[in-house]
Every structure is written in C-alpha cells, then in structure tokens.
Write a protein that binds this DNA or RNA. Structure first.
Lengths: 148, 148
DNA sequence: CAGTATCCTCGAGGATACTG
DNA sequence: CAGTATCCTCGAGGATACTG
C-alpha cells in the first residue's frame, strides 16, 4: 500500500496519518506552534533538507494547514501561518508531548501554563458529555460495517 | 539528521516521534487497540509487508509498548498485547482520530461511547487544574534554555 | 532571505517463497 | 499460524550550489 493510499481508506486515523505521518511534517507543525514562520527559520531549527522543507510547506499549504502570507514586497517574502485547521492539530501535538514527557525524557523541556487559572497545566482528556476523565477502558467503540 | 537521532534531541515530541513517526507503527498500534493481537491478523488487516511487520513488532516490544505473550505451546504461538505504556498512547490515537473525523471524512466510521454515562463521547482536552477547555491560545509555553 | 535545481545514497517497504 | 529469508524498487531525504 502506497502512503498516499492511506488517505483513501475509511479510517480517520489513517487519513490523518496520510497527512502528517512522515518523518518531518509533524515536527514542522510543532515548530510553527513554537513561533517559527519562515523558511530559513524552519530549516535552521530543524536541520531538515531545503528540498524536503520546500515540499512539505507546499503540501501543508495545499492541504490547508498552513497559509502562505506575503509579509514584505520587493522582493516578495512569504511566511507560513497555521490556519484553524492547522491549529486544530494542537491536541495531537499536546498528547504526543505528554507521552514523551512521561516516558522518553527526564525533565520536560517545555512547561505549559493555563492562562486563565495561572497554573501549570497538564491537559487531559475528558468526556464532553459528563466531564469525567476518559481512557481506553472507559470507552466502547462501535465500528461501521465498512470501517477499515 | 537520521530518524533515530530524533530520539536523542531534547524535545518530548521529537522523541515520541522517533518511536511512532513512521508509516506503519501508529497504525499497528491502532490495530492493537481495535483488538488485533496476532501476526497474521495485523498483516491481513493492514496489508503491511511481513518483514516490516516483524521488524515493527520487535521494536515495539523492545520499546515496552507491546508485550509478547505465549498463548499456546507446541508449537509455541505468541501474541502482542499493549502494555500500560502502550495504552498511554491512546490519547494520541484519539486526537488523531478526532482531527480526521473533522477534516478528512464525511461519516466517522468509529463511534465512541463513554461507558459511565452511556453517551456518545467526544473527548476533549481540559486543564487538569481548573477543568476548563484548553486550546493553543489558552496556554503559554515556557521553554527550557536547552530545549530543542 | 526564500526558495529551486541537481545529484546521490540508503533504507523503508513490497513481493514472494519457505519453515517449524 | 508466526514468523524468517531474499530480492528488488522507488522515493524520501541529505548535501550542495545557485538565484532573484
């Protein structure tokens, strides 16, 4: 199965994976959340090849995750900003980070504070209906007949 | 930068990505959450190459995400079960799914019900301290000086 | 700066046959 | 079943030079 074919399969995880499931894409997005918006910024901070980066930025722009904005004229210069669709990947980033914090690192290099309450935040998944914490065991999954 | 080198960088996201950030690993894990535990089950459901699958199952077992259990003797047969460390990837899976549900598919092929309240669950991220919904804008990030 | 163009390497992954 | 062994292909990604 080709990587792009994942995008056609009837599974939300696989389709998302077809977009971000390669070596660099998610790290480029993470870098954008961190405040990097320009080509050379991404390139230097990540150490990713210029051709790869060029390709990813184009794909992510086409996908609607980045918006390419001109921030200067003559010569024209562009930067990449996350769209709402891109921002909505934040929960993915956050859960990746929390797992890494827990299992792959001693001292988490990033701390998140919740602006509203001012406290160190460790976001957690709760049921939208009753507000209880949810994990794998507390949910039951129902698969459509044609689910991949 | 080699893919494995991501695992040594001072960033929880990158280190997690070094574990699951390839074409198949996350989908194998998703399949395990779905209830597949045996080699041929993974192979047939995913259509992944047998050599690739063999390699990933070994790596994930070594990483402590899967546990390899003998479920039959003479001949010995083994199956792969998620450990707690593996189960703790559930939030990643869930957030990937929810993004796909929203942006990449019409009718979500999987529905999750919260066992406790019985309702259709759409898990969401809330601050562990005050319980409010959090997104990118409501959090402020503090980076360690040596953060990647 | 923000890319494009080129060339190159290597390894991921597919396909298939075989084994206890 | 649960793999291992082999062979092969192709494309992802690295490196570097160049451009407006």
């Amino acid at each position: 199965m080709k990587h792009e074919c994942l995008g056609e399969v009837n599974c939300s995880v696989a389709r998302t994976w077809a977009v971000i499931g390669d070596r660099w894409t998610m790290l480029i997005i993470r870098e954008a959340f961190r405040g990097t918006h320009r080509f050379d910024g991404f390139q230097q901070r990540l150490g990713v090849g210029r051709n790869v980066l060029s390709n990813r930025l184009a794909r992510l722009t086409e996908e609607g995750i980045f918006e390419r904005n001109r921030y200067q004229e003559a010569p024209d210069r562009y930067e990449y900003r996350l769209t709402q669709k891109g921002m909505d990947l934040y929960p993915v980033l956050l859960t990746l980070m929390r797992w890494g914090d827990r299992y792959k690192i001693d001292e988490p290099p990033v701390r998140l504070y919740h602006k509203d309450c001012g406290e160190l935040a460790s976001p957690e998944l709760r049921c939208s209906h009753c507000g209880q914490l949810v994990d794998f065991h507390s949910l039951s999954a129902e698969y459509a007949p044609d689910a991949w």
